[in-house]
């Protein structure tokens, strides 16, 4: 990139002045319209006839403070579940995608199984998988049955890996055949080509949608509370039932958004980087 040079000609100087004036103008317009819209919103909400009652039942600072420790404890469960489920789902999704891309008649059963997997678990509602695993499986009374929390986590991993497998597969298939030809021509085997040439490019390309699904997973991990464990939303529900006040839900909602911000920021950054890399080519 070249460094900016001092404009030399009269025409260039005029253009610079004009452009600067335009910039100032657009900043002023943006600030003005934001202010107007914000004021209108505040007036509309706080001026509404029922605002005082809504404020009392949704935005009570005292209740918020009282409910916060329980909700935070629940949120910690969400965070831990998210961490393990995200890694589990990414790993399983990658394995399923790799099995689906295997060529050759020997692998037909594996390929069919992997395909059936993605069809089944993308179609099946998560809640049903959760109920089957957390309520049905313990009913077998087998020795060494994991806790409901682990079973719920497995349900999440199974469902989400169905989606992630398809994202990975799209990435693998987006790598141009000429890359395969170049790698195989050097004597690399199918596995070496996949591992060193195709997957690195594929994962880089689909990193934004993968992270996007992880953001979605963050909200769905709370569903394990249907089977008993208390997550943030469930904790808020309990607090609401205690106080007949909805403020705990708002608290939980704010915490969820705060939790999502870093993940979403990373997603945006990765997307931007991918776009820039492509433009730089």
């Amino acid at each position: 990139m070249r460094t900016a040079q001092q404009p030399r000609s009269e025409a260039a100087r005029e253009r610079t002045v004009h452009r600067r004036r335009q910039t100032v103008r657009s900043v002023l317009i943006a600030a003005g319209s934001t202010g107007v819209l914000g004021t209108l919103l505040v007036v509309a909400v706080t001026g509404a006839p029922g605002w005082d009652r809504v404020r009392a039942s949704f935005f009570d600072p005292g209740i918020a403070r009282a409910a916060l420790p329980e909700i935070l404890a629940g949120l910690w469960l969400n965070v831990r579940l998210l961490f393990f489920c995200a890694f589990g789902a990414l790993a399983l999704g990658l394995v399923v995608a790799l099995l689906r891309t295997l060529r050759g008649p020997v692998f037909f059963p594996v390929r069919a199984l992997a395909t059936g997997y993605t069809y089944t678990f993308r179609g099946l509602p998560l809640i049903i998988v959760l109920y089957v695993l957390t309520l049905g499986v313990p009913g077998l009374r087998l020795q060494g049955m994991p806790s409901v929390l682990v079973l719920g986590g497995i349900a999440l991993v199974i469902t989400y890996s169905g989606y992630l497998a398809e994202v990975f597969r799209a990435g693998i298939e987006s790598v141009h055949p000429s890359q395969w030809a170049a790698a195989r021509s050097l004597g690399l085997t199918y596995r070496q080509t996949m591992r060193h040439v195709v997957l690195p490019q594929a994962v880089r390309r689909v990193a934004p949608p993968l992270l996007n699904d992880t953001v979605a997973l963050q909200k769905d991990v709370g569903l394990v509370s249907l089977a008993g464990p208390i997550d943030a939303v469930r904790a808020a529900q309990i607090a609401t039932a205690d106080t007949f006040n909805y403020t705990p839900y708002i608290v939980a909602g704010v915490l969820f958004v705060l939790l999502a911000i870093p993940l979403i920021a990373v997603t945006d950054w990765v997307t931007l980087r991918a776009a820039r890399r492509q433009a730089g080519g």
């Binding site: 021509s185 050097l186 004597g187 690399l188 070496q192 060193h196 040439v197 490019q201 080519g281």
Partner: peptide, 30 residues
């Protein structure tokens, strides 16, 4: 294929690797 080198019209270098990694991939892995 290890005994035959081929060069393609569209180069087909591996875009995610440096020049050095492109060149050393086969010696190291194969």
């Amino acid at each position: 294929r290890q005994r035959i080198g081929i060069v393609f019209q569209s180069y087909n270098l591996f875009p995610h690797m440096t020049v050095l990694d492109n060149v050393t991939l086969a010696p190291r892995r194969v």
